[in-house]
Design a protein around this nucleic acid. Structure first.
Length: 546
RNA sequence: GCCCCUGUAGCGCAAUGGAUAGCGCAUCAGCCUCCGAAGCUGGUGGUACAGGUUCGACUCCUGUCAGGGGCACCA
């Protein structure tokens, strides 16, 4: 694969610093960056400023010395003709201006390869297990799960695009206390439907759907001690339908029950016991998680003999590694943040590198309806479900909205806004750009052979801006990888669409100059490829017309 | 009490420690005989507070204040 200009330039910069005897002074891994504003060039380095205080020289002077060395290294293979100018600007930034020819060449490649142009092999096929949603099968998916579903699915798409081998997994809590209570809830409703007077405890599942399950269970004569399992299966079917409607498909549904049935929990306990990380106290079995940075040791078997949630989870994560995954990503709700240390401790105790386990807390989405907060309570069965959001705003808006903020930030989701087909709704701004391009391409007079087009006719500021923005899609994908957060995708799509709309407004694509028309058609086709690739990753449709 | 997230323009949000802090809504003023005006251009208006680290802080650290979420031998 052809080396990226970023890497080539970074190498040249590094060599220059070495020759000047300065390289040791650079501590940060990154000293070459895409500046926020294009007037500061296409790539920028702050190396001189980092070094100035050590050298006790002015940053601009250091920058000038680096640039002098660097200038002799800009004609090596892959770089020749790519750099138009290197300037020392501001407090001591070294700014690199790439030539238009470089961007024309990139556009050609995009037109040739299509969306594949944006793929990379950074991941080198590393097996990644992305576990998300994992909601208990005790009710429909809530909005909190919906956000995790959108983030997880889109993150998986991005990582796949970057060459990782991603498995999407749903961990199914198909046994334990919650399932028992679920079964009891259904049992009571059956009695109630038969005319018996019942008392329905506060901690039981109050939702209307329990009646539906009760009716189904009665029809099939399900035994009382099998009601929990039956209800969980019934609800799981609903969850699966909801996720499919949302465009989220899992590769693996991992059963917690299967861990116990295979004796995996005992096996992992034996392993920890042998290493001396378990001890008995107050009739319970404890895991010495404090040895690995947790604030207190954790119970794994309660004094009544039953497991805590942590017990199967240790076995589960052991199994993730046993299945050959090198990178684990867990998306959890904010109610689990206290759980991070003990799970990382477990992984460390098993001899795995806790750094390979990435736990992302996906903050809650607060649902508004016409500016009013909608409160949620699973137990009372009064909450907005994923399905309701989908019915109300559609899949496109829902998926897009849920990743529009950083996963670590709270998200306000107003159903009324997401429903609107106006610019207030950002997903339409992007889709509109795509549809507009489709329309122009449809009206193009003749079929254009993109390989023959003279792109050097693209000289207007808006044309160059658009070309650069298209190219920057790669940076966006890398940013998503670095943060394990797909939200940068929405920012990029908005910026790319804006660059297109600005170009469109000032310059006519279909004109009398055939060569220029061809060049502009090629440009907007490349823009469309990038928008489509972004929308595909987000799992949002890309309409030809709206 | 302890932990996590968040305080940026009237509202909703951006800004890998970097250059003149950006965008949408709202509001005011403009732009369609011409490829889709679901668009574009311009105006108004902002970093909660107090210290610290740094050549440089919206960003990192400490404290204060405010909002949201969470604390278990529940899952």
């Amino acid at each position: 694969m052809k080396k990226d200009i970023y890497l080539l330039l970074a190498d040249s910069l590094k060599d220059s610093l070495k020759e000047l005897g300065l390289f040791a002074g650079i501590k940060e891994e990154l000293y070459l960056d895409v500046p926020s504003d294009m007037r500061y060039g296409d790539l920028s380095s702050n190396a001189a400023m980092k070094l100035a205080s050590v050298l006790k020289k002015s940053p601009r002077q250091v920058a000038a010395e680096i640039v002098e060395k660097l200038k002799t290294k800009l004609d090596k293979p892959g770089l020749e003709g790519c750099i138009k100018e290197v300037k020392v600007e501001g407090a001591g930034f070294i700014n690199f201006f790439l030539s238009n020819d470089y961007f024309y060449a990139q556009l050609k490649q995009i037109l040739e390869k299509g969306a594949d142009y944006f793929k990379s092999d950074i991941g080198k096929g590393l097996p990644v297990l992305l576990e998300f949603v994992s909601a208990n099968p005790t009710g429909s998916l809530s909005v909190a799960h919906a956000r995790q579903a959108a983030v997880g699915d889109i993150l998986a798409n991005v990582l796949t695009c970057l060459g990782y081998k991603v498995t999407r997994e749903y961990y199914l809590n198909d046994e334990g206390n919650q399932i028992n209570i679920l079964g009891k809830s259904v049992g009571l409703r059956i009695k109630e439907l038969a005319g018996e007077k019942i008392e329905f405890p506060e901690d039981h599942y109050q939702g209307e759907y329990i009646y539906d399950i009760a009716k189904a269970a009665k029809e099939r004569n399900i035994k009382a001690d099998e009601l929990g399992e039956f209800a969980a299966g019934y609800i799981l079917d609903i969850i699966k339908k909801e996720l499919t409607a949302f465009g989220v498909d899992f590769d693996v549904w991992y059963s917690q029950k299967s861990l116990r049935e295979k004796g995996r929990i005992e096996k992992v306990f034996a392993r920890l016991e042998k290493k001396g990380f378990l001890y008995k106290s107050d009739g319970a079995l404890w895991f010495k998680s404090t040895e690995f940075g947790d604030d207190k040791d954790r119970v794994v078997i309660k004094s009544d003999g039953s497991h805590t949630y942590l017990a199967p989870d240790i076995a589960y994560h052991e199994d993730k590694y046993k299945r050959g995954f090198k990178m684990l990503i867990n998306l959890w709700g904010p109610d689990h943040h206290g759980y991070i240390n003990r799970l990382k401790a477990s992984v460390a105790a098993l001899g795995e590198d806790p750094q390979s386990l990435h736990i992302l807390i996906v903050q809650l989405a607060t649902i508004f309806r016409a500016g009013k907060v909608v409160h949620m309570s699973t137990r009372r069965g009064q909450y907005i479900t994923l399905q309701e959001v989908l019915d109300e705003v559609g899949r496109d808006a829902a998926r897009y909205f849920f990743i529009m903020r950083k996963v670590s930030s709270h998200l306000d989701f107003d159903l009324e806004v997401a429903k609107k087909q106006t610019p207030e709704n950002p997903v339409f701004y992007v889709q509109y750009a795509h549809a507009r391009i489709s329309n122009i391409l449809k009206n193009a007079p003749v079929h254009i052979k993109y390989s023959d087009v003279d792109l050097s006719l693209l000289k207007e500021k808006e044309e160059i801006c658009l070309a650069k923005k298209i190219y920057q899609f790669r940076d966006t994908l890398n940013a998503c990888l670095k943060t394990l957060d797909p939200y940068a995708l929405t920012c990029y799509l908005a910026e790319l669409s804006e660059a297109f709309h600005k170009f469109y407004d000032l310059h006519r694509v279909l004109g009398t100059d055939n060569a220029l028309t061809a060049a502009r058609l090629a440009l907007i086709r490349a823009a469309q490829i990038a928008i489509a690739a972004g929308l595909d990753l987000a799992g949002v449709t890309r309409p030809e017309k709206m």
